[in-house]
Nucleic acid binder design. Structure first.
Lengths: 340, 340
DNA sequence: AAAAAATGCTAAATCGATTTAGCGATATTT
DNA sequence: AAATATCGCTAAATCGATTTAGCATTTTTT
């Protein structure tokens, strides 16, 4: 309840100028030749009265807000993003940064609107899962010297730091696993999207299938608001292609829809149809049968993201870092040996 | 790339004082008797050059940061919190507020540390899922006139606005549902915690059980870091009480642990043991059998939270609002009529 | 017609920090 | 001993907004 302290109060209390206090608080005591004795005294006093500089004033003067924006597809929709949010939070706090979040719903317009909303609002850095079509806005952030780290997917037209996983290789490996377990008519259900992560997963599928001379069954879902419409699309697709004996869902919520579709069709996993989904989650681990997944190394990913961001912010590192991390095939019951 | 505009530039450009510009931008034109013509002219110009006031400067002068802190247990652990985060985000943005988040892990020390970190950092308001023992810090926020809305649970020692659900009644209803479906030895698995939401759920259980003269089986789990230890505790509990024919899990992650425990014990749901869990999620909906749950009205809850917060911030409404919303029993396969 | 009130606008102080330029005292060099 | 350098610290400008007090005019009242 005591009135808020300012650097001016500190100076008055100790009989010194605010300049000196500021230098000491910013670790410039040595550089500015403030005596060790005075430095010590000020730091001790500041500690005692628990003085915290006013961030607004600091921000106004320095032009830095110490705020990082985390722009994800939907923080409530994809556990991956919530987990990343959780993991980067602590490290950011340790370095004195706060994180604000926002969700684009994977909509270009929403993303543009949000970037424009935050622009000129002194956000120090952006961590973004970019929808397609926001290249220009991202580029202009970069042009202004604002650090941007893209995550989950890349914008290939841009030279911009990003942290993604080996989508092609890991999908390739997963499809090969199905093939070596005896499945021959393997379907790939994905979104009708050109985003790099989706394109790479599809490429991994196509590669494996063509290497083994198998037929390719690809279903690209439209963007329906309602899950039910998506489930219906999957039901129709599987129903019209009864020779399919295995299916790969290219992302976790498609996986969830897929399981429902399979339940509706009354198919048995893996006897009638084997299943692998991208992204692990409780549902897949505890489902009966448990579902084989390609799991992303979330802590590893998060570490890289926040390291890149903090490095760009604190060390003014403007190098473009392209981090590609391996994903892991976790084999469970849903992809067991055919007819075993 | 054009240098950032300030209110001063606007004034210079139009040949008027910054005072006038400021009044107009703050909607005080009428009140301050600025002519309609000039007001129009300024607004048009501001629109044209896309001027956005510097939030740091505004914040420094007004003492308001336009930032709300959302402090949850774990944004990645409980879908409820991620969903709330998502739903309050847009409304907050509409009113010009940003949301920063942080996770307490339900630890008192972490919560205190975070509040202290953000204190004196000009956060305009706090939305908190409070662990026990942070009453004093919350009270001192309130004393300073900073709006606080507690969510998911209450701190009964405090007069503080909160948004919770009818934990007692909804649990009572769920247990009654089990009873009327023929179950007699109903267990209640919860956390060893005095938090109000947990206490109320337990009270709802005890009430139903005692009203029907049934035996009470309550298991309070310790706080283990590892899920496996919790699962083991549930396994032992169920194994030592083989007469239990139904179990209520008091929160969603306990529900997930419980399902695993039941799988380990090779019990059939609902034949060997009926199951109800608090909080709905995909896993419960799609599980085989599907799991009966007490579902929270997440959009409804979120609406109330952000309304309360914005009202306190914008209208200076200091009334204590105690919002208690109904929860909904969603009956699924896991609680089907005994021996049906 | 003089006094009072309303109109339309602005000068300047202020919020709390950072940072540039520089001042007086002591120490070192020549 | 005078000139120079170093030491230890500070005055004042600045960031970009808000807000109080008030100054000319014009209009209304008496």
């Amino acid at each position: 309840m005591t009135k808020k302290l300012s650097i001016r109060d500190i100076g008055r209390e100790l009989g010194i100028s605010i300049t000196t206090v500021s230098f000491i608080l910013n670790g410039k005591a040595k550089e500015k030749r403030i005596s060790a004795a005075l430095t010590e005294k000020v730091l001790k006093f500041v500690e005692e009265v628990n003085f915290k500089p006013n961030m607004m004033a600091q921000g106004l003067r320095t032009g830095k807000s110490k705020i990082i924006c985390l722009m994800v597809e939907d923080i409530s929709n994809n556990l991956l993003f919530a987990q990343v949010a959780r993991l980067i939070e602590e490290e950011a706090h340790n370095k004195g940064y706060r994180i604000i979040y926002c969700s684009t719903g994977n909509k270009k317009e929403k993303a543009l609107e949000l970037i424009r909303l935050f622009r000129d609002r002194s956000i120090d850095g952006y961590i973004i899962t970019p929808p397609e079509g926001i290249e220009n806005e991202v580029q202009s952030l970069i042009n202004e010297g604002i650090p941007v780290v893209l995550i989950d997917r890349n914008l290939p037209k841009l030279k911009c730091s990003h942290v993604v996983i080996e989508n092609l290789n890991s999908t390739h490996e997963a499809i090969n696993h199905l093939i070596s377990n005896g499945f021959k008519n393997i379907a790939f259900v994905t979104l009708d999207s050109d985003q790099t992560q989706m394109a790479d997963r599809l490429a991994g599928y196509e590669k494996a299938v063509s290497e083994h001379g198998l037929k390719s069954y690809v279903k690209k879902l439209g963007f329906h608001e309602s899950p039910d419409l998506n489930i219906n699309e999957i039901v129709s697709f599987l129903d019209e292609n009864r020779d399919i004996d295995a299916v790969f869902f290219s992302t976790n919520y498609i996986g969830v829809w897929g399981l429902q579709a399979i339940k509706i069709l009354n198919l048995l996993i893996p006897k009638d149809i084997a299943v692998i989904s991208f992204d692990d989650q409780d549902l897949f681990k505890f489902y009966s049968p448990s579902i084989t997944v390609v799991a992303q190394p979330v802590p590893h990913i998060s570490n890289h993201i926040i390291k890149l961001m903090l490095n760009a912010l604190e060390e003014k590192d403007t190098t473009v870092h392209e981090i590609v991390l391996p994903a892991k095939l976790i084999v469970r019951e849903s992809s067991a040996l055919k007819n075993a």
